[in-house]
């Protein structure tokens, strides 16, 4: 199993490459880090004088580190209600505890989120595409996945399309408000405060709700 430090290096490397458009990661402070040697031995990375490069074999591991970190953030914010400002520190410890099957289970109880609390995308895992119901209690689900009569509080909106987000904001579907799903066919009808709204599936997939448990 990888050391915590090695996982963090892989994660930083992936973010540098995938999200900042760079090819390598500056060695910087981890110049004499034993974790770098650990990764080189495994054949995940290669280093030159000042940089480390990600090798093919390390890609899936790096991706999974990013995924676990962001899932951990989601878990802390959506389920444990930890304030956004401190989540990074806590989730850095937490992510290392999420392994393989646990990671997919966490993903499932969070309703397979696609963005982390900071708005970065969460790489999808196997669990996100499979149809199998994991029979786990759900804590967070999009309105599209809720069942009729489910209640909860809107946790966050997840849509890349700003006009869709505007539409949801305009009907008052913003994080923090209580929501009850009344029916889901042929359109999604829910109640917020004293008002009822009907929306289509596309919009329903963008509202994530922290479910209230009966």
């Amino acid at each position: 199993m990888l050391s915590e430090r090695a996982e963090e290096i892989l994660e930083a490397l992936w973010i540098e490459i995938d999200e900042h458009g760079k090819k390598t990661l500056d060695l910087g402070a981890s110049r004499d880090d034993p974790a770098v040697d650990e990764l080189i031995k495994l054949g995940f990375i290669r280093r030159d004088a000042d940089h480390i490069h990600l090798l093919e074999k390390g890609k899936s591991h790096a991706l999974s580190c990013v995924r676990r970190h962001r899932l951990a953030e989601r878990l802390l914010v959506d389920v444990f209600d930890i304030k956004r400002k401190i989540i990074n520190e806590v989730s850095c410890k937490f992510e290392h505890l999420l392994h393989e099957d646990l990671e997919d289970n966490v993903c499932a109880i969070l309703g397979h989120p696609k963005i982390c609390p900071h708005g970065k995308s969460i790489p999808p895992g196997r669990c996100c595409s499979e149809k199998r119901d994991r029979k786990l209690p759900r804590f967070v689900a999009s309105v599209a996945e809720m069942s009729a009569k489910d209640k909860g509080k809107i946790a966050y909106l997840q849509t890349k399309d700003s006009s869709q987000m505007q539409k949801l904001i305009s009907i008052g579907a913003v994080p923090g408000v209580s929501i009850t799903l009344m029916q889901k066919f042929p359109s999604y009808v829910f109640q917020i405060g004293q008002s009822q709204f009907a929306i289509d599936k596309q919009l329903a997939q963008g509202i994530y709700v922290r479910l209230a448990h009966k």
């Binding site: 539409k167 009822q196 709204f197 929306i199 289509d200 919009l203």
Partner: peptide, 12 residues
Amino acid sequence: GELPTFYMEIPP
């Protein structure tokens, strides 16, 4: 063009 989205208030 943009595909339609549907959202509407259901008044009492």
